[in-house]
Write a protein that binds this DNA or RNA. Sequence first.
DNA 1: TGCCGGGATGGAAGCGCTTACATGAATCTG
DNA 2: CAGATTCATGTAAGCGCTTCCATCCCGGCA
Lengths: 341, 341
Amino acid sequence: MITIKEIAARLGMSTTTVSNVIHGKTREVSAETIERVQKFLEEVEYVPNINARNLAQGQSKIIGVVLKSLDFRLWHSSNILNDPFVSEMIGGIESAVREAGYYMMLYISDDIAEIIQRISIWNVDGLILFCMMDDDGNRVAAKYHKPMVCIDTYSSEKKDDFVNVGLDDEKSTCEAVNYLIDNGHRKIGFVTDNRVGVDRARFWGYRKALAEAGIEYSDRDFFLLEPAEEAHGRNIEKLCRRARDYTALFCCSDIYAAIMMSALKERGLRVPEDISIIGFDDNLFSRVCTPRLTTVHQDADRKGRVAVQTLIGMITGKAPATKKIRLETRLVIRDSVRKIE
Amino acid sequence: MITIKEIAARLGMSTTTVSNVIHGKTREVSAETIERVQKFLEEVEYVPNINARNLAQGQSKIIGVVLKSLDFRLWHSSNILNDPFVSEMIGGIESAVREAGYYMMLYISDDIAEIIQRISIWNVDGLILFCMMDDDGNRVAAKYHKPMVCIDTYSSEKKDDFVNVGLDDEKSTCEAVNYLIDNGHRKIGFVTDNRVGVDRARFWGYRKALAEAGIEYSDRDFFLLEPAEEAHGRNIEKLCRRARDYTALFCCSDIYAAIMMSALKERGLRVPEDISIIGFDDNLFSRVCTPRLTTVHQDADRKGRVAVQTLIGMITGKAPATKKIRLETRLVIRDSVRKIE
DNA sequence: TGCCGGGATGGAAGCGCTTACATGAATCTG
DNA sequence: CAGATTCATGTAAGCGCTTCCATCCCGGCA
């Protein structure tokens, strides 16, 4: 690896001059010198040592992306990336980070302390935090004074002071459940694997829709997919048995919808003839299951990109117009809901 | 951020001593000094500046993970992470990297030159390369003299000189197709979206199985999912029409299997009654589609972990026992293949 | 007593880069 | 034409850390 010093020596000039042309300070260097240096740089395929640069500049050009996995001890997998929603979002983040000339460092952990430790070491310029757990956003923000934007993070505290991009989960869900109600459904179950964050907001949307339609809610209407691996079989068996009392299920993600649909069909229930199902996310699952899933569409890729753009704005000194950035959703109607006459 | 210098000053000692205790050089420092320093470090929550450290040591502690996306201009998505196989593998890599005390930097790009550029900048200690394109492994290795291990990378050149972890794709596929043949199938199609790398190896396995059973192969048996977005509809329509002449399809991934299954069922064909389907990977898709998919199981998480372990071995000066590391597969029999009497 | 060895500590260079500031030449202004 | 201004380039300090080497002290040994 050739260094700036070496280049300067070979060209018979100072490192300052070389550095200046590298940084495009055209008014400090004569045109011919620029030309000469640039040609030489290409010739030797100069690559800067970014550690040295960062040390000198006190920055890092790294954006830390934190996935708190504990919250996502998913029913179907211990790997948070296996959720297509997450992987698509990461894809969006990665592209946006790259296009902005930054680098992305990915941290997956269930321990916020460990994460902060690892991030601090690299002195990242900013942070994207994806964790559903209440108040982790606040906790990290309090500890770590760098630009940060959260994705899909809710807070139960009054003074949540982090920038957050997400959806209006309550409203989206309310609309979806209203769609079921409009189609004549009255016995509607709510399927999730947790009681926090996004899913809780969706739960309240579900409750709101029921209430507005004068449908009473009972705890039995809450279908909890349990994460414990060994309980899968029994858990799903029990849920399917309970589902027979319902004409429709709202599922907090397409994965759950696909899992439930598959399990119900295996036990002889027909979708949507016997039971209607509605999902959330609109990822590939919703298109390859049979029947194709009616679901709430959101743009995960865009969610990631918006988070990055907002963050980089903050890094470069631009406060976001609003702290709660909300993306649009829309109900995509396919074949998994039937109309009850 | 407190620095070593500051700490040394506050403690009335030299930076050398502080550095020594940080690095656990116990024989260079007296027990009581160690004690004092450690206590102080904790007190002020010292975090090293890794840029400075790396600069001084000429290392980086970063493992670069490169996904070459062009090869994966997937039929169903432009985001390579959306393939559950990939996301699970990344999950494995991430865990292994973290557990080994390294950091992971993820690069997704379709341009090898750009990737090398970005990697060189960070002076990564080693590289994990995931790209199906022939010979990219060789090209990167020739250009970039750092430890590197490829995943699922094939080479058409004689002198492929990179370490590679993958499967015996040919054998795995051969076994799967033999299973179809044993079940009485003679008209067996091969479904993929490309003609390179892993899928080509699988193709030869498929051909081998046919040949051994005395079944003639014709180009018509090759079902190509075309990536071009606008052609999806027509493409899938045509494939489904052609599929009516077959009693079974071998698909190079569970995703393709799920997509084909869904499309076929939409057009009134029953799986497996009218047509049997077999997939590859054994990811979540295979379990939530109906009927549940018979598929070749591989352990993507392990693939990632093995790659990392091998790489770190190389970084620390341990050559791998073999350059071609092959993981096991096994056929998982579920419900998507029927026996023809 | 004088010398040696080793344990504990410190001094200082250097990793590759950026940047504030200095220098000197050329150009401009009234 | 003196002084001010601009342009082009160089000098050197410093970013925070590691590490080679020097120094000093003390006990052991002949």
